[in-house]
Simulated scan of single mutants.
Amino acid sequence: MTLCVALLIAAEFMPVSLLTPMATDLQATQGQAGQAISVSGFLAVATSLLVATVASRFNLRHVLVVLAATMLLSLVLVAEARSFPLLMVARALLGITIGGFWSLATATLMRLVAASHVSRALGVMYMGNAAATAFAAPIGSYLGGWIGWRGVFWALVPLAIINVAWLWMSLPSLPPRRAIPPSRVLGLLGRPHVRRAVLACMLGFAGAFAAFTYLRPFLEMRSHVSVGALSLLLLALGAAGFVGTSAATALLQRHLFRLLWTVPLALGLVTLMLVWVAPQWLLVAGMLALWGALNAAAPVAWFNWLAREVPDEPEAGGSLMVAAIQLAIMAGAGLGGALLDHVSIDATFVGGAGLLLLAAILAARPARMQSGR
């Protein structure tokens, strides 16, 4: 499951490091190419709202393997895309895997390990997130200059094949336990603490991805970095994700609710700092490392909140949370692209920071995000 997470993150956000050559090759603007992330988010939203209902009728092991195979198909189609519409179709298929896998991941871990080990298991799985964030973007940027952006996606295909086979062999049988009607997913919004948490989570992810999606044009336009320097900067950002994931996992037991508001607050401030220090690439490197650590901590905190505060409905809760996150990513990437195309790259980062600060304000009252309060 950790490998599948790494591949999902790499496949979903690889366009961040390849945005410029992809846009040029497909005759699209950089803002339009950024929508390749948005369309996967759109399908992820739809899938995540339905997958709990569908998966509740089948063996969960089979569902996860089918989702991994869908990701494999998406990678092949992206690598072969000769037009922007075909690229969008391929990214839509990836969105199905993203929505399905992430929605079921927490519930799956809750069935695989004892309740006392769920936080640790989530931390291990999110190391796949940190690994992909650390290496996918810089390696993609570097290899893109040698084998082209299509070659980068082809390089992921063998790993995806291995992942499908590994999931099939390693996961135990997880037969369905109870039917989950679609109304149960959205019905969770009737709980006040869930409603507030979902909105705070959405604002945080939208703000982060309004900026993250357009890091390459920001570094090229404002910091004037070369492709080699770009790869090193993205590596610094990604490698810091290991620190952020580990730190968040260590702090969860005693400081979960504090993390939910301090992380977006700090991330918003660092995003604004990037605009200010953009011409000084050494300072940019430091800010990007801090940004990467904070960004990696956010999903660990939110999915542990889900396991702790919605323990009676892990499948429905996972579906709702993933739908909210993917909708936020889609909206954030769309907003960032619009600001880039019609205002400036600085406006993209300022807009993202504003959303992050709103998320911090909303999450700053922990009692409002606890069940029974």
Score class of each variant (00 low, 15 high):
Ala33Arg: 01
Ile161Ala: 14
Leu335Ile: 15
Tyr142Asn: 14
Pro299Asp: 13
Gln27Thr: 14
Ala55Arg: 09
Val157Asn: 07
Val225Ala: 10
Ser344Ala: 14
Gly241Ser: 06
Leu67Met: 04
Phe135His: 08
Leu75Tyr: 00
Gly140Ser: 06
Gly34Arg: 15
Ala316Lys: 04
Pro181Asp: 14
Asp312Asn: 03
Val76Cys: 14
Gly41Met: 06
Ala155Gln: 00
Ala229Asp: 13
Trp166Asn: 02
Gly95Phe: 11
Val227Cys: 08
Gly241Lys: 10
Leu188His: 05
Thr108Leu: 09
Ile345Leu: 09
Ala81Thr: 01
Trp276Pro: 05
Gly352Trp: 09
Met321Ser: 15
Leu290Ser: 08
Ile361Phe: 15
Leu199Ala: 15
Gly317Val: 08
Ala114Ser: 13
Gly190Phe: 01
Arg150Phe: 05
Met273Leu: 13
Leu340Ile: 09
His62Val: 09
Met169Asp: 13
Arg61Gln: 12
Leu362Tyr: 04
Asn59Gly: 05
Met127His: 11
Ala298Met: 14
Tyr214His: 03
Val76Trp: 15
Leu265Lys: 10
Leu73Asp: 08
Ala331Pro: 00
Pro138Phe: 11
Asn163Val: 05
Ile37Val: 15
Pro217Leu: 04
His193Arg: 04
Leu43Arg: 03
Gly128Glu: 01
Ile361Arg: 06
Pro175Gly: 03
Leu112Trp: 07
Leu288Lys: 03
Pro314Leu: 13
Pro172Val: 02
Ala248Gly: 06
Leu19Met: 11
Ile329Cys: 02
Gln30Thr: 14
Val343Gln: 11
Met287Asn: 12
Ala131Glu: 08
Ala130Ile: 00
Ala10Pro: 05
Arg368Trp: 12
Leu356Met: 04
His224Ala: 12
Ala211Gln: 11
Leu340Asp: 00
Leu362Asp: 10
Leu272Arg: 09
Gln35Leu: 12
Val343Tyr: 13
Leu18Thr: 02
Asp341Phe: 08
Met202Phe: 11
Trp281Glu: 07
Asp341Ala: 15
Leu86His: 07
Gln27Val: 04
Phe205Tyr: 14
Ser40Phe: 10
Thr271Pro: 00
Leu335Lys: 00
Ala197Glu: 10
Arg61Asn: 01
Pro85Asn: 03
Val243Trp: 08
Ala278Leu: 00
Leu67Cys: 07
Leu237Asn: 13
Leu230Ile: 09
Leu18Tyr: 05
Val65Arg: 10
Gly352Pro: 09
Trp261Ile: 09
Ala6Gln: 02
Leu67Pro: 05
Leu64Asp: 11
Ala92Phe: 05
